[in-house]
Write a protein that binds this DNA or RNA. Structure first.
Lengths: 340, 340
DNA sequence: CTGAAAGCGCTAACAA
DNA sequence: TTGTTAGCGCTTTCAG
């Protein structure tokens, strides 16, 4: 309600003086400072940040665009990002694109019109034009989790390949030799890296890669179920199953249970992500922990550095992951004999 | 980059004309309209919404303040709210207060300075001063899930009491007589209503309320574990357990499993919320489904109505809930005989 | 049917 | 040490 002008009038000073006491941007005598403060208090002055932003060309607002907030992977990322932003006086505008690249672009353009200082994308479609466009536009942005194909811009991801290698090695050490894989959405660079990591893990452990054990999935529960159903039909079923994310692992688990096969006695199961539920479940899921909060936090911090012109040491970072062994992995059942 | 002025110059018209063709706010001859459009295209004009907002006193931005995005209850609410907002051309600024009333207030004040058009609170602390303050301030807001103590303002909640009654009745119909309860945070109006519903459910089914079966909790996993541990120690353990939310139900389940008691063979388990995980688990949790997406959607829609002066039929709505019977409830084990 | 100009609330040259 | 003033980009009254 009250503006700098009102305060200036009430305090009997110029609006410049008021502005300067608010921002501490030049010396104002204690005398006047006091008068201004008093007037602000009396009038219950609150700055209009919109007007300030119009002047300063800085909104202290970031766009946070996610493919689907409802995917258990993202809330922790958002929380980390919001925390890092808050620490530095920024806010996040949340957009849920519903996995639609079109909405992603539309939202980006709206956010740009709202003059956000920077943008964060979780799981940007990998063929997206956005990175190139934003680069031209000059707006800083950071891609989380999925590395954009066009190489410029900031990136914070995780060591998907390493995590998957660890998962396979764990299984191999337990004695598993027939290990199936349920892949994620192939358009995602993260999913590709996980698939690559699986193959590499097999190789490092001297295990053959058998193609009938490689299933496609889309990161969703149902695709985990389907893959498991298919795998169970095989003449020679796998003794272990690794999914490219926890959600599909749970889908597979449901199917397994329904078919009467026990986890981990009959088949071992490993996920990837370590979503909250994986440790909440009555039987904990063995999985690869991804530092999602960290990812959001680092991403936002980097982005703000870029906005404020702080030099950035590493514009592209890959956070380490960690295998968490819980209750869904065990040694395979004894072989019945040498012949088959 | 390009402003209305640039466009006006390029098109050889006044800035008023440009503004009017942009907004369709008064008649402009086809001739000039065409020239303006061409100029906008040529200069790649994009409106600066900040400047517009400064003039119109409307930002088309809402504050969405949540206690903890990471709590599986909220993402769906946020998604619903974001969707309803997007439908009407609004955006959400996301704030995670980390359950802290102080941060909640601080964030509110910052959002107000950013001139948001309205505010949404999920699980506002029930003793909060905010409702009264916002009322004075004249900023529309809606409380989700928890009904604020000060009665004004919009509210969208769910039928907590009815849901709990349904849960208890389900158990009673299966033949359970010793039913334990794990309550939620007593500062939450929703938790209170759930506790009340439990008692009422007992009463309606002619069951006595036994105080040693009533446990306190705080909606978190650990408190579910603790409650279950306590319950298991009882001389006469319950045959069924209902938790005020799913997360605590999972905590209890973990403890039960660890103690070797089977669900539902040895004890039945019912949660409340129907978070995504409850249907993901290999053994599905019987629970009360809350329409969280709906809650967010309705809330945002109502808030926008209030902002835009659309008359509101029902400023306070309570959405219906539904018992979802999955795999964690069954008849109690046979009694060994009449004499205990 | 179109244009000139004021002003939203603020910051920051420039003057004094 | 403080004040005057232009102007951020836009909408909208008021004239014509």
């Amino acid at each position: 309600m009250a503006s700098v002008k009102d305060v200036a009038d009430a305090a009997g000073v110029s609006i410049a003086t008021v502005s300067h006491v608010i921002n501490g941007t030049r010396y104002v005598s204690p005398h006047l400072t006091e008068r201004v403060r008093a007037a602000m208090a009396r009038l219950q002055y609150t700055p209009n940040l919109l007007a300030r932003s119009l002047r300063t060309q800085r909104t202290h607002t970031l766009g946070f665009i996610t493919a689907d907030v409802t995917n258990p992977f993202y809330p922790a990322v958002a929380k980390g990002a919001a925390a890092a932003a808050a620490e530095r006086g920024y806010n996040l505008i949340l957009v849920d694109s519903g996995e639609s690249p079109a909405i992603e672009e539309e939202a980006t353009s709206l956010l740009l019109q709202k003059q956000v200082d920077g943008l964060m994308y979780t799981s940007m479609a990998s063929e997206s034009e956005l990175p190139a466009w934003l680069h031209d536009e000059g707006t800083p942005f950071v891609a989380l989790n999925r590395r954009p194909s066009a190489g410029n811009g900031l990136y914070v991801g995780i060591d998907n390949e390493g995590g998957m290698i660890a998962a396979v090695s764990h299984l191999a050490e337990l004695g598993h030799e027939r290990i199936a894989f349920i892949a994620g959405n192939p358009l995602s660079s993260a999913a590709q890296a996980r698939t690559a990591g699986f193959s590499e893990g097999l190789r490092r452990n001297g295990l053959p890669m058998v193609s009938e054990l490689m299933c496609e999935g889309d990161y969703r529960l149902e695709s985990g179920r389907k893959a498991a159903a298919y795998l169970l039909e095989l003449r020679k079923a796998p003794t272990a199953l690794v999914a490219a994310n926890d959600v599909m692992a749970f889908g597979a688990w449901q199917q397994l249970r329904q078919a009467g096969v026990r986890v981990p006695e009959d088949v071992s199961l490993v996920g990837f992500d370590d979503i909250a539920f994986s440790s909440m479940a009555p039987v904990g899921l063995t999985t690869v922990h991804c530092p999602m909060y960290e990812m959001g936090h680092r991403g936002a911090a980097m982005l703000i550095d870029a906005i404020e012109g702080v030099p950035i040491q590493e514009p592209s970072v890959e956070l380490p992951v960690e295998l968490i062994v819980r209750d869904t992995t065990a040694r395979p059942r004894e072989h019945t004999g040498p012949s088959e």
